[in-house]
Write a protein that binds this DNA or RNA. Sequence first.
DNA 1: TCAATAGTGTCTTTCAGACAGTATATA
DNA 2: TATATACTGTCTGAAAGACACTATTGA
Lengths: 234, 234
Amino acid sequence: MTKGPGNGLTQAAIAVDLVIVTVMDADLKVYLTRRQEQPFQGLWALPGDFVRAGPRGSLGEDLTAAVSRAFSHTTQTRASAAPLQQLATFGRARRDPRGRTISTSWLAPLSPDVAALIAASHDDAQAGWFSCSEEVPWMRLSFDHADILEAALARIQQDVEHTDLAFALAPKVFTVSELRLVHEAVNGQPQDGRNFRRRFQRLVEDGRVEEAPGRRHLGRARPAKVWRKRTQPD
Amino acid sequence: MTKGPGNGLTQAAIAVDLVIVTVMDADLKVYLTRRQEQPFQGLWALPGDFVRAGPRGSLGEDLTAAVSRAFSHTTQTRASAAPLQQLATFGRARRDPRGRTISTSWLAPLSPDVAALIAASHDDAQAGWFSCSEEVPWMRLSFDHADILEAALARIQQDVEHTDLAFALAPKVFTVSELRLVHEAVNGQPQDGRNFRRRFQRLVEDGRVEEAPGRRHLGRARPAKVWRKRTQPD
DNA sequence: TCAATAGTGTCTTTCAGACAGTATATA
DNA sequence: TATATACTGTCTGAAAGACACTATTGA
């Protein structure tokens, strides 16, 4: 019992699956990739990978290291570009026809700036952003990824109201309207701009956001003040 | 690549760890067991077990099945006695000196009635209830169980305010004061009984709880109405 | 009678939702 | 000028926090 807990125990491969989301075109989008190999070859899937073994039978990498690596490989972006957050673990015995696997899913919220770079760098036939409300091919997802994605979306809707998740999905420097758009995209319904602005004011008073230099000029209307999340909330 | 995802991938044992909690003596308590074998022999640990392989190299049991089995084995109680809920997964490469393991932690909130039965049936030197605020031997916990327990307690404090968790920690049929005691034990500070009762009234009006027959007579004071959670919230 | 808990009610502040109006940019 | 968005307010009702009081039991 030195190499591993031995007999009668299931040895499984550890997978990490990424729910990479962003807000584009006023819509919550998730990044899916097409599977290049069996099983489910050609179907869409959440990007992910297996935890790797280290050199010559060492213990291998930490779970968090595998997630960061999978994220970087998928997006060609540093893992620091997204505040990776663990969601849940799926361990049905038959979830992978190849053998026993267990998958831990992680949320990777991206700002639209970063998401746009990723959109530009891949082959649209093999990877891409899918509208969660419209385009996700729920019936054509690999493994139990529909379950994973469904759970992730529920979590996102909760967190966007009660955590800093909205800031991760907004541009690093944003206007009030841009932050409101994040909320609207996530819960799929318009927010009253005036009431939202009042809630936003409280964030400012509480020191959670601060004004940034400059103004942003989006449509053909009055330029808006820009804000950023405060790193030190006092 | 038929039996399992083969080369370069870490094969790990899958552990499930239980955070069994209840409210006793106006305090949140967690059930710990003493480890009977190496590693960490003699130290306290969260109860748990490994996911088992099935007959002759089959895939083995589902994650949820392993949790139910571990719970039943630990408590000598049916898994239906607690609404088992997945918490998080811990996968540091070196979390288990025997070899690569990955552990998914589950919350098992128990009503004090069930908890009392368990307390009566074990050897106090080998297992027992520990006050989370006072008695948990944080420095003497096995593996990364201190991390797991810490995360679980934070989750409990969140959920008790926003989910049905408080009902799981209260007697199946309870008085308003007993439910208030659950909140007080979890967040460690007294609640105004009059304001709590108003919140409780809304639960009744919303059909989430209903009156139960009889009254409960606890101290040497006026008997209190008893209530139960409604199974069909309309 | 007293101590202890059960239960009802009031006052105030905070906050969310609905809605009106002014300001400043471009087309 | 028209229009779109930015920004400032008001009114109302729901709910939380602080606090006063009555009711019913056993000791």
